[in-house]
């Protein structure tokens, strides 16, 4: 075992159309690796913890880039649009400030310049055991090192664990689920759409993948519906550090209020389970109530109800509750 640090040899494909990319990805299957901004990719490859034989680089496909309005008042964001563009785009900031705020809290400015929205939602978990290249459940093995009597699991899941206790590291994923976004996926069989809420996959369903994307699938765009445009938003990411860190717990919330009371709400927590966690009981409880401190106080405890903390992550439950308080207060 060694601390590898050099890119191993591999084939590089740089298609200019999505169709070619999908065909390549299909042909390569599990031997292939779809490359977006590379911020997740190169760690894996240089550490030699994943061993694809070929990369399909999406950066030359123009149609995957950019932000445009769609019919009906929504917005479509190309999967290869950088996080910096998403966080600064006037249209996104005006209509979907929640996503702009989430994108602006990803990692660091350098990483946001290079990292893409598609890559951010498709990235792999940051469980340190898994990232070490160990053959855990998620890597196709028989064991979880994090969820064991002495496992070091401060950053791990308090909900939805099933053998694997890794969490979703994506900051934008919570915002996209809260905004009820649609993920556009293309493969050789055509284009299909998946709701953001169904895009992320927990270990109970598939322990080796974080999303529904299978070998051969290309996430081409993310569509934001008009339904949740111009809503009241709240985003907060609590991390140890204010730059270049992953969330300990994050929250993305969207509210529709009418005459001072909440008509509809979507609240989503990040870093508490393998998928962005909709706080459905909180959502139900706040409907018809004003968005204020006392509502927050009344519903906060619903957020972490049913949490199952591991050895070192008990703090996530009260932190979740507190973030709900703040979302309702702001």
């Amino acid at each position: 075992m060694s601390a590898y640090d050099v890119m191993p040899d591999m084939e590089l494909f740089q298609p200019v159309t999505v169709e070619d990319a999908a065909a390549l990805a299909e042909r390569l299957g599990s031997r292939g690796w779809v490359l977006a901004g590379g911020q997740d990719t190169y760690g894996w490859l240089k550490d030699r913890a994943k061993h694809p034989k070929a990369m399909v680089d999406l950066s030359s496909i123009d149609v995957l880039n950019g932000i445009e309005e769609t019919d009906g008042g929504g917005v479509k964001i190309g999967a290869m649009t950088t996080l910096r563009e998403v966080s600064r785009d006037q249209l996104i900031r005006a209509r979907y400030g929640l996503l702009a705020a989430a994108a602006a809290r990803v990692a660091s400015p350098q990483i946001r310049n290079q990292g893409t929205l598609g890559g951010n939602v498709s990235q792999d978990t940051r469980c340190w055991y898994y990232r070490r290249g160990l053959s855990c459940y998620r890597a196709g093995g028989n064991i979880c090192y994090a969820d064991s009597p002495e496992g070091m699991n401060r950053e791990h899941a308090i909900f939805g664990a099933s053998r694997c206790v890794a969490v979703s590291p994506s900051d934008t994923a919570t915002a996209l689920v809260a905004l009820d976004a649609t993920m556009v996926i293309q493969n050789t069989r055509g284009v299909h759409r998946v709701a953001a809420g169904d895009f992320f996959v927990g270990p109970a369903v598939n322990i080796t993948r974080m999303t529904v994307l299978r070998p051969g699938d290309i996430l081409t765009a993310i569509e934001l519906p008009a339904d949740w445009a111009h809503a009241e938003y709240y985003f907060e990411k609590v991390a140890d550090r204010n730059v270049w860190d992953f969330a300990l717990v994050s929250i993305a919330a969207a509210f529709r209020t009418e005459n001072g009371t909440i008509r509809d709400a979507r609240l989503v927590c990040g870093a508490v389970s393998c998928v962005p966690r909709r706080l459905t009981s909180v959502e139900r409880a706040v409907i018809g109530k004003p968005r204020n401190d006392s509502t927050g106080e009344a519903v906060a405890a619903l957020a972490s109800e049913g949490a199952r903390p591991l050895n070192y992550n008990h703090f996530k439950a009260p932190l979740m509750d507190n973030l709900v308080r703040r979302a309702l207060r702001a």
Binding site: M1, L134, S135, G140, G141, N142, Y145
Partner: peptide, 13 residues
Amino acid sequence: FREDVWGREVLLG
């Protein structure tokens, strides 16, 4: 086979 936590070859199943 897989590698165990210390890099030794170990039966997977």
